[in-house]
Design a protein around this nucleic acid. Structure first.
Lengths: 228, 228
DNA sequence: GCGGTGCTTCGGAAGCGCCCGAAGCGCCGC
DNA sequence: GCGGCGCTTCGGGCGCTTCCGAAGCACCGC
């Protein structure tokens, strides 16, 4: 079995795919929650999660009688998003027109969807970011404005990658990933410019949704020139 | 069955994965060749290729008694490369140290590997390319130098996307994709700065290899400042 | 302690997917 | 037109994977 086939097969089971999608926003869930989301019993879920962990797709953290699972890293989220893009191609089947999801959602810990790629476009087009070594660094103005907004740049720099692209499946253009993407998303959520609509939904897609508040719409326009 | 699981399962079978990898350079192969590469009989190969075609991963072209298969598009190659990156993560297992493959290879129709990401870095860092709308456009100097090299820019602009990033699984940084990536690769091959080492190999990875010629090494250094 | 809860392992059964051989269809070259 | 070749469809068999119920282990709170 080649590594490619083994990895794809791991994602290719409906129960495991549902679990992975539920973990896509970046949060951690317990084995029981994942079992409920996948619609299978506890024993089956346990076996599937074991396979995912051995395959390196999820990481485990045992705490008391709970076991918390999360995606093993940004690359995992990125690969799943890319596969979602393949699955959603119009040639294949019209994707259920989930307007809210296309507008904004969480991917790993960063903002995806129209708002996410819009931000990426403004930051790269308006001289906040400049390309460097396959990723991005902040320009002088970018650094100043990020700091003024309250983005925790020190935390962003502690991430394995400071700023890089993550292909957005619904927009087919990149949004901002890496430590900066995470900290920017954290800020937007903390300021309640964006809010999670249904973080508790059982449906794996619904729980990822992000929605701009009225105040957020004004702020995105004012700070980034972004009409969301 | 969700789209994600269905698509991943399509890639997750060893025979189908071998076929897809064989198609990754962008060339077209017949059903019989793919059967031999996958190590299965003609009937099984026929069924697998039918599934891949119905899933939208490969495209078919019937010519006489042969049926030619190729990947359905750049996004398919991109998704497979991303999955290869997941599969190759050091955390999972040490990837067979195929130095030649990491150095240079074909991905869809463009140059990947160290040479590919190196080119991407030089083009973006030295002012040939500037970000625009989630992709890239040529600057004035970039356009002039590409034209001087003999890159067919008109053909590049006819592609659905002119220039965008494709995540490189071995380098974990993007290389140049889109029409410009394809035309640049075409030029490098035509000038014999890069040559395919074993385009006929049965092993799906070996056939992708690209190798710089002595003349190519000098030219990459002179034209792009790239030490390959 | 002792019961309750969360999770895992074990055993067994059902279902699905993959593969091969045989046969059939279509195109090609002599 | 005839044989050969490439590919497909059909039928059957094998193997793997997934699931559930029952039982067992670990942790927590009373």
């Amino acid at each position: 079995m080649t590594s490619l086939a083994a990895t794809a097969a791991l994602i290719g089971d409906p129960s495991r795919a549902a679990m992975l999608q539920a973990l896509l926003p970046g949060e951690s869930l317990t084995a029981g929650e994942l079992a409920r989301i996948a619609g299978i019993g506890a024993p089956a879920a346990s076996a599937q999660l074991k396979a995912l962990a051995e395959g390196g797709l999820v990481a485990v953290h045992a705490q008391g009688r709970h076991r918390w699972f999360r995606l093993a890293g940004e690359e995992v989220a990125q690969a799943i998003e890319t596969l979602l893009g393949l699955a959603a191609r119009p040639a294949r089947r019209p994707w259920p027109h989930d307007e809210a999801l296309r507008r904004g959602r969480l991917c790993w810990h960063h903002v995806a969807g129209r708002i996410g790629v819009g931000l990426h476009g403004r930051l790269t087009g308006e001289g906040w970011l400049q390309p460097e070594g396959g990723g991005w660094t902040l320009t002088g103005t970018g650094e100043a404005r990020m700091a003024a907004l309250g983005v925790d740049l020190a935390a962003a720099r502690r991430a394995p990658r400071f700023a890089c692209d993550c292909m957005d499946w619904s927009e087919r253009r990149p949004h901002l990933a890496g430590g900066l993407g995470r900290e920017l998303a954290t800020l937007l959520l903390r300021r309640k410019w964006l809010v999670r609509i249904e973080p508790e939904a059982t449906d794996t897609l619904r729980r990822r949704r992000l929605h701009p508040t009225p105040e957020g719409l004004r702020a995105l326009e004012a700070e980034f020139g972004l009409a969301a």
